[in-house]
Design a protein around this nucleic acid. Sequence first.
DNA 1: CGCTAATGTGACATTTTCGTGACAATCGCG
DNA 2: CGCGATTGTCACGAAAATGTCACATTAGCG
Lengths: 229, 229
Amino acid sequence: MTAKTVLIVDDEASIREMIAVALEMADYRVLEADNAQAAHAMVVDDQPDLLLLDWMMPGTSGIELARRLKRDTTTAELPIILLTAKSEEDNKIQGLEAGADDYITKPFSPRELVARLKAVLRRTTPTGVEDTVEIDGLRLDPVSHRVSANGEALDVGPIEYRLLQFFMTHQERAYTRSQLLDQVWGGNVYVEERTVDVHIRRLRKVLGDDHQHLIQTVRGTGYRFSTKE
Amino acid sequence: MTAKTVLIVDDEASIREMIAVALEMADYRVLEADNAQAAHAMVVDDQPDLLLLDWMMPGTSGIELARRLKRDTTTAELPIILLTAKSEEDNKIQGLEAGADDYITKPFSPRELVARLKAVLRRTTPTGVEDTVEIDGLRLDPVSHRVSANGEALDVGPIEYRLLQFFMTHQERAYTRSQLLDQVWGGNVYVEERTVDVHIRRLRKVLGDDHQHLIQTVRGTGYRFSTKE
DNA sequence: CGCTAATGTGACATTTTCGTGACAATCGCG
DNA sequence: CGCGATTGTCACGAAAATGTCACATTAGCG
């Protein structure tokens, strides 16, 4: 796996320095910028994998930059973590609305930073080349985005597709509804946990009698995909 | 997901109280201690999932306790959040060097506390950290949430599962019904002690003749999980 | 050996969790 | 804009899990 590039945008050099050291120890490549203009240019030119963005900066503020990047389709995919000295709820909400994928309140430990960063990258990085998965006659083809059972095409909706894909690539492991919401729906969405049940149900229905046994309910916990038992 | 236990260590009862209320509303189990000695004992005995530790306390200071815990391999994994009234950098650095995973400056909002706490727990409880345990052909796999005996799957309910997991990871030691209620059911529940007996019985039943001898009755005390005798 | 307290055991009522169909809101697209 | 597809939520019932009791059995003691 190639090293990820992280662009740090903060007007205080000391903070950039501290973060840079922590990230380099964790094997990330680091770019730095001290204002929004420069940052914007670097995003376009160097295409970092993640943006660490200070909330408050002279000139264009961090949140403004975030908004701008998220509006542009060529940069909208870039995950953003906001750094903020303020811990009020308002800012958090504003930040998330602006399209940030996470936010961290200063002061924070380097360890925390790296952990959050990993988490964000994990859920925003497409797993590279997605292979076709076939289990028990059930086949999922990421290229054509189709699912078939014993050669016959199945009609699955987008969410059911992602759910099935997640399950097929993570067999033999029980997931809670909360984890599934994180992994399949994506991090910061507010959806009822029971909604997962409904989609499980829909997926099972499409899979039909031949394959619905693959999705097992783990009472008191959640669900599991498995060929066994 | 089983409720996490948080040990609050602060010499001021009012602060402990405030925190305890906030945490209980967020479905955490709460333990309290008002000095470092007691705290250390509780860490060993009750094995909390997280330590909320006041910086300044009479006698052994919070930071001293943190250092001590981090030095001992049996407690080094326990995540620690330092509470401090002082916001100076020095303390922060000292705190992080002592091995604290995060620190919070008083005063703080309960909401912030819970948020930080969640974050720390999330990143210190890697989902795969629980190892599969296998004893005498009896196997419990926390990842797939499965129990099997000599390869054959066993049908255990949620409580029986947790009970067995607790026993398998705490062998050779007798536990009272009260302790089991704490550890398996979770702190603040009101259940009859005899209920433990019933679940022991149910667990023994699913374990079958092959393995039920592993759960031994300690008359006058409680139960013990052991391969011996 | 008999007595008593502790534990084992089956049955039952209650609570919790899950499956399921229906429905309204929203989205994508022609 | 209008249409069907997709999605999230709810309400209801079924199924599983749980807690408690009553009674049976056992261990330990004089």
